[in-house]
């Protein structure tokens, strides 16, 4: 393809009716995953979103397989008795319960359970994919993201879930942050920490399962980690990080789709790379503050660790 043949931004917006739903799906999923990703990143649970998105992928693949095996027409559009939505939410819910059940000291078993969920999900999706040749395109879509394949019903569901979860989290933000980052002090002050944590993990499970069905496992993992990494580098507070990560996530999801169109790239890869560029930019922008902090620590080291 020559430079003259390359698609232009004008062409993208001329065909807006065609690209609207998938491009906005990227933005909406990015915003939701960006907000929730702050809890994932600061709670050192990065692998959680990878494992849940793979489990969601397996759920979708199993739903396709069940539909194909039963000879149900329209399995790929979610019309079978076991719709991809149900498969996705069911498997993600199962993986979340497995992870929440861990009470081992230091979460040692949780690490192992995360690895199990990730590997079983990834390998299972690929294995099931070989048994449903007619749906092979959909398996690729749910693993790596899709260029155009977002049906209006999927977009509307994603929009409703994102709006509901973001409103809920905006309302409970103070309690949620304390339950996630200083749970014991919060429990002593009577905050319903157990309930808030269930709400947080439940939100992650629902968000990841719905977003994986719409935009694919790779961009879901990327958008639930990278915007939050960039935001926590720059924001002065948790609430600032939540807002910034939401903006970064929406930007990565939408602009990633546009860049994929302009440069003929896979959408999931494009969204992931754009989010990675934001992380690199955030690290550069945060460098002066980081150097100031190191210098202050160094000076205190000379003056003594207990310098009041």
């Amino acid at each position: 393809m020559t430079a003259a043949d390359a698609p232009t931004l004008a062409q993208f917006f001329e065909a807006w009716d065609l690209f609207r739903d998938p491009a906005l799906s990227g933005a909406v999923a990015g915003a939701l995953l960006g907000w929730l990703g702050v809890y994932v990143v600061l709670g050192r649970m990065v692998f959680l979103s990878a494992a849940l998105s793979q489990a969601a992928g397996l759920g979708v693949a199993l739903a396709f397989w069940a539909g194909a095996a039963a000879g149900t027409a329209g399995a790929s559009t979610g019309a079978s008795w076991l719709s991809p939505w149900l498969g996705s939410i069911g498997m993600t819910g199962l993986a979340t319960l497995l992870l929440l059940a861990d009470r081992s000291p230091g979460g040692i078993r949780r690490e192992a359970a995360l690895g199990f969920a990730y590997l079983a999900g990834a390998a299972g999706t690929l294995a099931v994919g070989t048994r449903i040749a007619a749906e092979a395109h959909d398996i690729d879509t749910l693993l790596f993201g899709s260029a155009v394949a977002v049906v209006p019903g999927d977009f509307r569901l994603l929009l409703a879930v994102a709006a509901g979860l973001l409103l809920l989290h905006a309302w409970t933000v103070r309690g949620m942050a304390q339950a996630a980052f200083s749970s014991e002090a919060a429990r002593v002050r009577g905050l319903p920490v157990g309930l808030l944590r269930i709400l947080l993990f439940g939100s992650l499970a629902v968000a990841i399962s719905v977003c994986t069905r719409v935009i694919g496992a790779l961009p879901v993992f990327a958008l639930s980690v990278l915007p939050a990494v960039a935001a926590t580098r720059l924001a002065p507070s948790v609430r600032g990080a939540l807002l910034l990560a939401t903006v970064f996530g929406a930007l990565s999801g939408f602009a990633g789709y546009v860049v994929a169109f302009l440069y003929s790239l896979p959408v999931g890869a494009s969204q992931t790379l754009l989010a990675a560029v934001l992380v690199a930019a955030a690290f550069l922008a945060g460098l002066p503050a980081s150097l100031r902090m190191r210098a202050a620590r160094y000076r205190r080291g000379i003056a003594g660790p207990g310098t009041p």
Binding site: L42, R44, Q178, F181, L191, S237
Partner: peptide, 27 residues
């Protein structure tokens, strides 16, 4: 120690304000 380790961003006054919440007052 805090659960999330040293990476959680916040100004000193934000850390103090968190202590205001008791029970369901965060709503």
């Amino acid at each position: 120690r805090e659960d999330a380790g040293p990476g959680v961003p916040g100004r000193a006054k934000d850390v103090v304000a968190d202590g205001l919440d008791r029970g369901w007052s965060f709503l």
